[in-house]
Design a protein around this nucleic acid. Structure first.
Lengths: 131, 131
DNA sequence: CTGTCTGCAAAAAATTTGCAGAGAT
DNA sequence: ATCTCTGCAAATTTTTTGCAGACAG
């Protein structure tokens, strides 16, 4: 992590995540990236993602029964969760983080929370309408 | 799922989950099960786990950065979450489920939650002491 | 008996690694 | 010039599948 180089691949990955501003899977990333860079390898994406995670520029999410997604983090302190619709797979923001309230109670019991993830799925407004 | 047979493998898997009463990974299950049944295959465990999930006898959890765990469900309606300690990997119960409060707010916005999972990790009381 | 379940081996799917050449600083 | 990064291929890791024989009902 000492010297990270600003390659075209890295730039593209980060700017794609930035403009999408929703959690994206490796496959989504790859299928978008090949449009610009037809030879880009998935291993390149994996390696860049690791480096971006290490630099805290992106966040990792598990949605949709354990599928892995990544999302650009505009503010380094930003903390956000998402919900995914079972039917249309669209991803929505969770209005509040319900864990922070819990954190105090947990710490009183002697457990210090370092990390949390929430996976919520269900049916979104549109899909309910169209059923 | 029509006719589920009561094999020795199935019995052992369920009773091991029952007596452990904590989320267990496939590997933990397997390494315990071989003591009784040296030839048991992981595919047998996977298949039985699927069937037990379908019958709603066990729950599936993701802990420890996406590792999959299974746990016996004593009461079919039981709803529970867990925290895992980063250092000792011990699993603790979460005192309350923070999602239910959210559920109402989400439904007002038109999203019906069908399923949720929480992954929390940190450092437990003992590990803090021993640091 | 009949149909389901098992162990084994092989197949899939997802991610990681080794390497030689390309590219960034 | 040096060191990191890339694409490719192969290796890992995790889970699923096909199959022939074993076992439950």
């Amino acid at each position: 992590m000492a010297n990270v180089r600003n390659t075209k691949q890295r730039q593209l990955i980060l700017s794609l995540l930035k403009e999408t501003d929703k959690p994206m899977s490796i496959n989504e990333l790859h299928s978008q990236l090949v449009k610009e860079l037809p030879k880009i390898a998935k291993s390149t994406i994996y390696r860049n993602i690791d480096s971006l995670l290490a630099q805290n520029l992106i966040d990792k999410y598990y949605l949709n029964d354990n599928e892995v997604f990544y999302r650009f983090k505009s503010d380094h302190k930003e903390h956000k969760h998402f919900v995914i619709c079972d039917q249309c797979n669209q991803i929505f923001d969770l209005p509040t983080c319900p864990i922070h309230q819990l954190e105090d109670a947990m710490e009183e019991e002697g457990f210090i929370i370092k990390q949390h993830q929430i996976q919520i799925s269900g049916i979104c407004k549109n899909c309910i309408k169209n059923n």
